[in-house]
Design a protein around this nucleic acid. Structure first.
Lengths: 346, 346
DNA sequence: CGCTTTTCTGAGAGCGCTCCCATGCCGCCC
DNA sequence: GGGCGGCATGGGAGCGCTCTCAGAAAAGCG
């Protein structure tokens, strides 16, 4: 690797000169070499090698109008998000898929409400070809921003506005929250439990709503006193459990909408000397590595393939980007299956 | 916001035409407006507003040679990294700092050994102005890659090669691991404990080495049987604890090199019916939200400002980028202080 | 009021690349 | 053997922006 002027990156022009061809031919070779005769291809490749040529990304983007980058927008203002392995795993899945297609991941974390402007400007500036967004609340401005920027976007988790009867269809990837919850509650029922409580997640997150719906699907004549709302945190799970025990001391099972709340509930049950699963059976959701298998007793929980969801989101988006050039429409959504993992807590 | 041809973004040319000025003047206004008379500034700003103009990033980068983006390289091949809130918090700190200076964060996750090539190409391609890298092992190729790409880089955690006597100096940010460990062990000593064991982290990570060194600083005549090595995971902490109990049943305190291993140790101690802190006092490291405060009993641990470290890394890098243009040298490293947080476990 | 000095503005080159189109070359068929 | 089609190659425009430089306008001075 020769460096004529150290620090000065060689251009295509230099490669072409060294290979004794035109810039156009050099460009063809660098981009796959279609329609160039073998001997020239080799000459150019040698020149590339010798000069240590790497294409200038900005120049390429300027003309092709494609950046080869995808934004991941994480709009969760709460602390939860980043102490939550959930997102981390999705991101890893996304990263794997993007990498495999030579796309880059640009992380856009929203730190405060004022950040929406920044994001809007960023997306409009043509920095990225598409976007992935997560856990949108009902009135989240993100969809409007991406739409205005003409930015193909795939959502992680069913966006809440899709509950409306005539909503605009957007592609999203989500676990089968309702089905998974149904399976969990039915499992408790089959265990002979009849006073099954539910610690729900926050009402403004569709995953929480869908899991609650699944719970209701099984317990048709459900008692409102058996439902408490938490915030998907350990602490809130503990609070909800305390509440439930006050309202219904005779409950014999709890289905928590995620593992973190389940572990909070478990803590309270243990503090009160209530045996799990003998007196109260407990089921969580997510099968979070750092929680479900570690608690005492380990949690029976609903597993979802989080990394797989990430990959799927990326795949959906990339497919959308390809189609865009052919003028086709956005891809459809995908619901991924869940599995009940039986451990000691139920 | 008028859109003349929906989908076709307005260019500076269009703004200039609408404002009745030259492209050069429009450019000046867009970039701060220095040296342009007020009435023209306003005209241009109005045109920008009306057309919804957003500068084209690629074009700007092409001429300025600055991308306004920084790569965050996460080279940890193990699973640990992303179920570990540690990185998440650093990233949040980095993101905050970058955002405040209008820089973007590009996440480069290494999925396998073959990925180094990809990273090298990416950095050489001029996609980013600088890089932040984490937890480098001794023979990690990342430093060489960033150096070859002429990419200013700041490291998170002291890179291991800085242990060598005549190492190349690189800027890094790290907690005062040794000092923190020293304080923790001294605290146990002051509590009257005399058989203080240590669950160390993996020997190839400097944070582990430094914490071990801190332990040794206090226990000058330390007994090798009192030291066991883990892998910074809950599981490995439990294994190490088991080992230690076999070798030294009479130990009366344990200093674990991180909270995860401390929680594993705690689990084993509880299983054996050993009272914490009465029989064995336990101290961790990191003060990880999701672990230290949640265990039973809550962990006494060494706190470090992880998010602050992230911010600092970004700040150091950005300062370096500024100086680069003035030909100055790389910034120095920073060691951030730690605090002992006393909870029930010691 | 005319001249110099300073402040503003505009014209134009050029960043590195892709891609359209014209040109040249070869082979093939009648 | 002349003409024609097809394929490989090169010339050159142009993506949208910044920045230098020269010229125009405004300001200062005698």
């Amino acid at each position: 690797m020769t460096e004529p002027f150290p620090g000065a990156r060689p251009t295509l022009e230099a490669v072409a000169a060294r290979a004794g061809v035109s810039r156009a031919t050099a460009s063809r070779v660098v981009n796959g070499g279609a329609g160039v005769r073998q001997p020239l291809v080799e000459k150019v490749q040698r020149a590339v090698e010798e000069l240590g040529y790497v294409p200038n990304h900005a120049a390429r983007t300027l003309v092709t109008r494609r950046t080869g980058a995808v934004a991941v927008i994480i709009a969760e203002p709460e602390i939860r998000i980043f102490s939550d392995p959930f997102f981390s795993q999705q991101i890893r899945g996304i990263s794997k898929e993007l990498t495999a297609h030579d796309y880059q991941l640009v992380l856009l974390l929203l730190e405060g409400p004022g950040d929406y402007d920044r994001i809007a400007r960023y997306l409009a500036g043509g920095h990225v070809d598409g976007a992935l967004a997560f856990s949108l609340h009902t009135d989240d401005p993100i969809p409007e921003i991406t739409r205005r920027a003409g930015m193909p976007t795939v959502y992680g988790g069913r966006p809440s506005w899709t509950s409306a009867p005539d909503h605009r269809a957007v592609p999203y990837v989500d676990a089968d929250n309702r089905g998974g919850a149904r399976e969990a509650v039915r499992y408790l029922w089959d265990l002979g439990r009849r006073r099954i409580a539910h610690i729900a997640g926050p009402r403004d997150q569709t995953s929480a709503v869908d899991r609650l719906d699944g719970y209701r699907d099984v317990l048709l004549d459900e008692d409102p006193a058996l439902i408490a709302e938490g915030a998907f945190t350990e602490e809130s799970g503990a609070r909800a459990m305390t509440e439930l025990l006050e309202r219904c001391p005779e409950l014999d099972a709890v289905f928590a909408a995620n593992d973190l709340m389940a572990s909070g509930a478990l803590r309270v049950l243990k503090e009160r000397g209530i045996a799990v699963p003998d007196e109260v059976a407990l089921v969580g959701f997510d099968d979070m590595d750092s929680v479900a298998a570690v608690t005492d007793p380990p949690l029976t929980t609903v597993q979802q393939d989080i990394e797989g969801q990430g990959r799927l989101m990326a795949r959906l988006l990339l497919r959308g980007l390809d189609r865009e050039r052919e003028g086709e429409r956005a891809p459809a959504s995908v619901i991924t299956p869940t599995t009940l993992v039986r451990r000691a807590s139920a």
